[in-house]
Design a protein around this nucleic acid. Structure first.
Lengths: 237, 237
DNA sequence: GAGATATGAATGAACG
DNA sequence: CGTTCATTCATATCTC
């Protein structure tokens, strides 16, 4: 699947006045959450039929086309990959220059994921939208959230990411305490090898419900936040 | 023939300030026009020798490699086919939900072709580039535009596509007036079966010189624009 | 409201 | 040929 038509088709039926101008799809915070959750649950490249399923899901929160979903995943994959490369490069460069003058560049876009901002700004009206059960008002229904772990969670707490971003851009190697599934755990700052630490493939969620981005080797590249609560959820097979 | 070498080889020797290095070929508007015209004239999969011919044509407007031409046609075919499928799917889905809430998705990318934007932006300097006759300044000449109907046209008028896009995303079924080869003609909005209407295989050109995309059944999927002028040109045998 | 950033869309290149 | 990746274009959004 590559360049599905109907990309810019979705007309904004925003709650606001329809601008006559054609514009691109602007996903709602709820839609982004769903997409992020699916992506972080391991389905990074949904096949066509799954894309349709996802689109139908998203349509509960606003007009979307299959193509939008396709592009979203394509861009998400691409940019995630690029970020990882960038991190690796940065880390490598860091070794080359153990403690240079101008220091290492820490890209602020490496926040847990790009959702946090939207979540904060999204009007919290009708938060905790009751996902799951009620698809009573849809003909071609049957599109529950089943199959996407994490989608049933509530997301009412304020995300603590981003704004409390690492105050220092240097790579620190001290230890800090976080709560993993409720258990206080000492972890080092910086990239964490979740796969090795817990012996398996897991998705790491912050207590806000937002997944922490992880690379293909099961490593959390931007690390965790001291004192925060995280949850390990087995990754889809 | 699949992975012709020397694809990224063509370095731009643009007439303008040379950008540092651009890895991939960026076809000039004139080149796109030529390619689109050839494609829409029915030659959607040129054999190797024809590809070479085309490349020589394009080289009048900038550095190109055979591979670029090959890839262009391959992508063009692929994406054209995909768009058609998507349109069909959308139309089918529309029948399932005659008048739902969120309405049907109409893709603006189905404008006559993706050139319109480039054409507008392309400096009109030396427009109506004298195609055809003068191959006086080329050694391995003999590559006229003969054989590609529509390539001799002038293309100085402003394209009226895109910006005057269908203001409403719904499929309308009223009639409208267009000029076909100078003759005022009433046609319905929406897909037009050119083959049936005119009893033969034709390529439909907008007066700007841009061909209107047509599927393999001779149907214009995105319809025409009220009041505009179009020309029917017999398709290559 | 201009510049910087984030991200949806498009497309050349390439893979399987 | 269908699919995927890398890069680029265009625009929505945020920031100051």
């Amino acid at each position: 699947m590559e360049d599905p038509g109907g990309a810019t088709a979705s007309r904004q039926q925003q709650g606001e006045a329809e601008q006559p101008v054609r514009s691109r799809w602007t996903p709602k915070p709820e839609q982004i959450l769903i997409l992020e959750t699916i992506f972080n649950s391991g389905m990074v490249n949904p096949p066509k039929d799954e894309t349709v399923r996802i689109r139908k899901l998203l349509e509960k929160f606003g007009s979307v086309a299959d193509a939008n979903v396709f592009y979203w995943f394509q861009n998400r994959r691409s940019r995630s990959r690029r970020r990882q490369r960038q991190v690796q490069a940065t880390l490598s460069a860091a070794e080359q220059t153990p403690r240079g003058g101008s220091g290492i560049q820490y890209d602020h876009t490496f926040a847990p994921n790009s959702l946090s901002y939207s979540m904060v700004n999204s009007g919290s009206s009708s938060s905790s939208f009751g996902l799951e059960g009620n698809c009573s008002h849809n003909s071609g229904c049957g599109v529950g959230f089943s199959g996407y772990p994490g989608l049933m969670q509530e997301f009412e707490q304020n995300p603590v990411f981003c704004e409390t971003e690492a105050p220092n851009s240097q790579i620190q190697s001290q230890m800090m305490t976080v709560f993993m599934n409720g258990v206080a755990t000492e972890v080092g700052r910086g990239p964490l090898d979740i796969k090795s630490m817990f012996g398996g493939d897991f998705v790491v969620y912050h207590s806000s419900g937002l997944a922490v981005e992880m690379n293909e080797y099961g490593i959390l590249l931007q690390g965790l936040q001291h004192g925060e609560s995280y949850f390990l959820v087995p990754r889809l097979p």
